[in-house]
Structure formats: C-alpha cells, structure tokens
C-alpha cells in the first residue's frame, strides 16, 4: 500500500469523524435557530404581557427547536447516510452528569408539588410536565454544553410562563426587584449568542466538508 493510499485512508477517517459530528454535537443552522429562539424567549417572555397566545408560543419554542434539529440532521447534514458520532468518555460523563441534574431537579420539584397535587392548577401541571420533558430532552438530545444551557433555558422559560411568570430582563422593574435572578437569566442570551456563532461556523465547515466528501467519492469512483 503506497503512502498516497495511507493518506487517503487517514483523510477518509477524518472526513467520517467530521461528518459524524452532525448527528449529535454539531447543529449548524439548527443551532442558529436555537440561539434565536433563546433570545426571543428571553426578550418576549420578560418584556411583553403574557397573553395566552404568547404563552403557547413560548411553550412551543423548545419543542419546535428539537424537531428542527432532527429534521436538519436527517434531511440536510446527514443526507449522504446516517453516521452516529462516537462520544469520548469525557463527553459521555459530562452528558450523563447534566442529564442527571435535570432528573434530580424534576424529582425535587415533583416531591415539592406532590402534597398539593390534587389542588394543582392546569398551569402548574404544565410546569411539572415541562420539567420532566427537559429531563428527557437533556438525556436524548442536548449533547453539547451550549445546547444544554440553551435547551434548559427554553424549557425553564416555557415552564415558568405556564405558571404565569418569566425570567426578568435586565433593566426592567422585575430585574431591579430580583437582581440575582436577572443576572442568572442574562447568562442565557449570552450563551445563545455563542450558540449562534458556533452554528454559523459549523454550517460553513459542513459546506467545505460536503465538497471534500464529493471530491473523495469522485476520486474513489475513478480508482
């Protein structure tokens, strides 16, 4: 086997590894959408009066985002065939830890709500359902740290608006009344901006990857 063949095999390994990222950790345009949803949820939830239509829209955002991620991966980023990314041990541990925290929070919230379970309003029941949905989403879909933070915010904001609240936006009366919560909430739009940047960068990398994969296929066909 010549050095050229060795190089080609190494290139193929690296192309496959890169392509596999788009099955899990790299979202591309779906990450951009998630970031935009996060910004919209933060601003609209905190600034606009929460009518029923707005509440429903904010509840729908995390679910729409997860759907968009799946559709983007299957129909665009993994169009050449599904290749499942291999997680490193560290990534797997971090993911399990994050998912474990969401399950723990869901259990604690449920235990806290259990004594009043009979008297819970529909909004509070929806709150509980969304907290458990977050645990499921964190386990199944929110693989990278940025995805986890943005997904957690979208679900938490959706749960809060169901109960009639929202995270305070910096500069509003609610933020002045509760500065620690306002500062914590500020973390989410900042993470959203990072996720948008990463999404754009992943999308560009994918376009170059696709071109390299097509070149490789043509070369393999000729050989």
């Amino acid at each position: 086997m010549s050095d050229g063949t060795q190089e080609k095999l190494c290139e193929l390994e690296s192309l496959t590894r890169e392509y596999a990222r788009y099955s899990r950790s790299a979202g591309g345009l779906a990450s951009v959408l998630g970031g935009l949803f996060c910004l919209a949820s933060y601003l609209f939830g905190g600034l606009l009066p929460l009518s029923l239509a707005w509440r429903m829209a904010l509840v729908a955002l995390p679910i729409l985002w997860l759907l968009a991620r799946q559709v983007a991966a299957r129909r665009y980023y993994q169009r050449l065939g599904h290749v499942e990314e291999q997680e490193s041990t560290v990534d797997r541990r971090v993911h399990r830890c994050c998912a474990g925290v969401t399950v723990l929070v869901a259990v604690l919230v449920t235990i806290h709500a259990f004594p009043q379970a009979v008297r819970l309003s529909p909004g509070s029941l929806a709150y509980l359902a969304l907290v458990w949905l977050l645990a499921l989403a964190a386990w199944r879909w929110l693989r990278s740290a940025l995805d986890f933070v943005v997904g957690t915010f979208l679900f938490c904001q959706a749960a809060l608006v169901c109960a009639g609240f929202a995270y305070p936006v910096i500069g509003t009366a609610e933020a002045i009344a509760n500065p620690p919560m306002a500062l914590l909430a500020l973390l989410f739009p900042l993470t959203a901006l990072l996720l948008i940047g990463r999404g754009v960068s992943d999308h560009r990398r994918f376009r170059s990857l696709r071109a390299r994969l097509l070149q490789f296929r043509e070369a393999a066909g000729e050989a």
């Binding site: 193929l12 590894r17 499942e84 393999a220």
Partner: peptide, 26 residues
C-alpha cells in the same frame, strides 16, 4: 483495499448506515 476502506470509515463512528459507505467508497 475495499475492506480496509470500510474499516477506516467505521473506526471513527459509533454506527454507520450502509448508504454512507456506498456513497464514499464508490
């Protein structure tokens, strides 16, 4: 060579669909 190519594709992924191998191998 063809089997080496298959292994090279599989070694960096958890699972690979047949269609992807078909596309990249020619």
């Amino acid at each position: 060579p063809a089997r080496l190519l298959i292994l090279a594709v599989l070694v960096n992924a958890k699972e690979v669909e047949f269609g992807f191998l078909e596309q990249v191998s020619g």
